[in-house]
Amino acid sequence: MSKVVSLSEAMASIEDGSHVGLTGFAITRNAVAAALELTRAKRRHLRLTQVIVGLETDLLVGAGCVDRLVYSGGSLDRFGLVHAVNRAIATGTLQIEEYSTLALTLRLAAGSLGLPFVPTRSMLGSSLLDNLRAAGEIVEQTDPFTGSPVLVMSPVRPDVAIVHADTCDEEGNATIAGPRWSLRETALAAARVIVTTERVVLRGTIPPERVVVPGTVVSAVTEVPRGASPTALPGHYDYDRAWLEAHVEATKEGGERFRRYLEGMLEARAVHP
């Protein structure tokens, strides 16, 4: 059965207060078109889980859509910091839970597998652990087999994950070129997945071994060419240097400057959907 819908229809299924898993990484494969649509629809009180944040998250936080962020860090690589996220943390308007990359990926993997908890040796002795202990998502335990200290973490299950795929068939079977970081774990941990893609193709044209996100967990597919721009999509397009620089400047200054930048971005997207 075809799951192809418009971008606005797909995004309208995400309600205020939803827990959303995002799957971009810094300046690459961000679901920018989807994030802008959530911004346009003025979604509020979202809870985001994303292993490494990037431009999409910075836009959503800057636009005031997000109350809580579960992540392990991130930046726009050498272009600069995620100023909107960082400012919201420093001023207390954004609540965070902060992990290491592996620890948060393991929590998502536990969510995808239905495991009740997952152990790790990452984060022992760190300030990350001190803060997370207080949040109650993590407990220091003794390894029942060796007696060593070990951390035990709860699983994460977002309500919905958003993935920007290279190609996707109409039933949601999606391909991802290049490294996959925590994209698959995030998608499979979520109750359902929305796929935006450069190109929708017919069922049967993607060799099954190339499918990274199985259509079985996908609820909606929408074709958005250049949907990750201005971030890079390996094999399709490079990051847009000028746009990323403009983003860093606008978010660094914040306030009215950021509002003008965001409005310009929304208008540009409305003309070239």
Binding site: I52, Y71, S72, G73, G74, S75, L81, V85, N86, I89, A90, E98, Y99, S100, T101, L102, A103, S122, M123, S126, L128
Partner: peptide, 9 residues
């Protein structure tokens, strides 16, 4: 605020 841990930790 800076980059955070990422995989550093």
């Amino acid at each position: 605020r800076i980059n955070g841990s990422g995989g550093g930790n």
